[in-house]
Amino acid sequence: MKALKPRRFGWWYVAEWRLRGMRSYRWTILLMTLGNPVLYLAAMGIGLGALVRVDVAGVSYLHFVAPALLVSTTVAEGFNEASWPVMSGFRWQKFYLGMSATPLAPVQLAMGESVAVSLRLWVQSFTFWLIGLAFGAFDGLVSILIVPIAVGAAMATHAVVMAYVATIDNDVVMTFMYRMIMMPMFLFAGTFYPLETMPVFLQWIGWISPMWHGSQLARVVAIGLPEPGWLIACHVGFLAVWTIGGLLWARRTFTKRVVV
């Protein structure tokens, strides 16, 4: 049987392709990887932080906001990588259809996407962490745990968005997703201030967003945010359910799109 290797390693071949494709926008990636942390930490942590003289959650504003900035910029990139590229694969360039003529199975396309994007995000969030150290935004080596948390939250988002994008056929929906999901999540999911300071009727935006769960976990490891154990379990569980559920959903939507 000639399909033995693709059956087993197909997901990796897809990831290989995806990483190779990222080379074509490597300057954008590099600029974002270096620029994001510098700009966000300077603007929010130091600029805005100069105005916020009081401690937030028991630490300086820079220390409060930096872990969440790392998480949310990583999640945002996970969102990006799940939207336009996946849309393009099915609709514009249709390269998934070319791939589906090979031994690859649809679920391997989704898995390969996921693997390649996560590799990229490991590098991105690790770089953010290093720059954060230089800014004095993170204390101690234990704060490196923010990196896997950020990647986890980003991949939870990526899986669900990728699965959904495989079902849609026009970019109007996607523009809508950016405005109505990504932006509110960024602004209202407790990145820049504790979620509890919001009126209760807006707090749900945080509860259902991977960004908030990720940011809270990041603060637990970075600044010792006193979250009760059950809530920590909730954060981890939420991200795990989204990741696994998202990938299972993606298996369905990718298969539906490829096999007619």
């Binding site: 399909a3 059956r7 070319g98 003529a101 031994p103």
Partner: peptide, 12 residues
């Protein structure tokens, strides 16, 4: 499918 496609060349 994967075994069949392993021996196919497809020009869409």
């Amino acid at each position: 499918g994967p075994e069949v496609r392993a021996s196919l060349g497809v020009v869409p």
